[in-house]
Simulated scan of single mutants.
Amino acid sequence: MPGNSDTNITIADALTLLLHNQHALGAAIEEITAWISGAGADIVADNAVAALETLDTNATAITNAIMRLRQC
């Protein structure tokens, strides 16, 4: 089904862009976390690390979905 393949490519491309955004946000949070930790706000830094873990988990799921879409 050509339409389905085109749709999968479009969705995979959009997810790829979102994944790139997610990686950029993760990098920014890492930088801010290092700065916050250096300022002695360890509880806030710990919360930021938890947010990074969520981003990593979700990035894995998004990557898997992209790979499945691109195989169809």
Rank of each mutant, 00 (worst) to 15 (best):
M1C: 06
M1F: 11
M1G: 15
P2S: 03
P2T: 04
G3P: 03
G3I: 04
G3Y: 05
N4E: 12
N4C: 07
S5I: 14
D6A: 05
D6Q: 11
T7A: 09
T7V: 03
N8L: 01
I9N: 07
T10Q: 11
T10K: 10
I11F: 03
I11W: 01
I11R: 05
I11G: 00
A12K: 00
D13V: 03
D13E: 10
D13G: 01
L18K: 05
L19Q: 03
L19V: 01
L19D: 01
H20K: 09
H20D: 11
H20V: 05
N21F: 08
N21M: 06
N21Q: 12
Q22E: 09
H23W: 08
A24V: 04
A24S: 10
L25C: 07
G26L: 04
G26D: 10
A27D: 14
A27F: 09
A27H: 11
A28D: 14
A28W: 12
I29H: 06
E30G: 13
E30Y: 13
E31W: 10
E31M: 13
E31I: 11
I32F: 12
T33F: 07
T33I: 09
A34T: 12
A34R: 15
W35D: 14
I36W: 08
I36A: 12
I36P: 03
S37F: 09
S37Q: 14
S37N: 14
G38C: 11
A39C: 10
A39Y: 06
A39R: 13
G40S: 11
G40T: 08
G40L: 08
A41V: 05
A41T: 00
I43M: 11
I43T: 13
I43P: 02
V44W: 01
V44M: 11
A45R: 08
D46K: 13
N47Q: 15
N47K: 15
A48W: 13
A48D: 07
V49T: 14
V49H: 14
A50L: 14
A50I: 14
A50P: 05
A51C: 11
L52E: 12
T54S: 08
D56R: 13
D56V: 00
D56G: 12
T57N: 07
T57Q: 10
N58K: 06
N58C: 02
N58I: 08
A59V: 03
A59Q: 03
A59C: 02
A59E: 06
T60D: 05
T60M: 04
T60I: 05
I62V: 15
I62D: 00
T63D: 06
T63N: 06
N64I: 00
N64F: 02
N64K: 08
A65N: 04
A65R: 03
I66L: 02
M67W: 02
M67P: 01
M67N: 08
M67H: 02
M67D: 08
R68S: 07
L69N: 03
R70V: 00
R70E: 04
R70Q: 09
Q71H: 04
Q71D: 07
C72G: 12
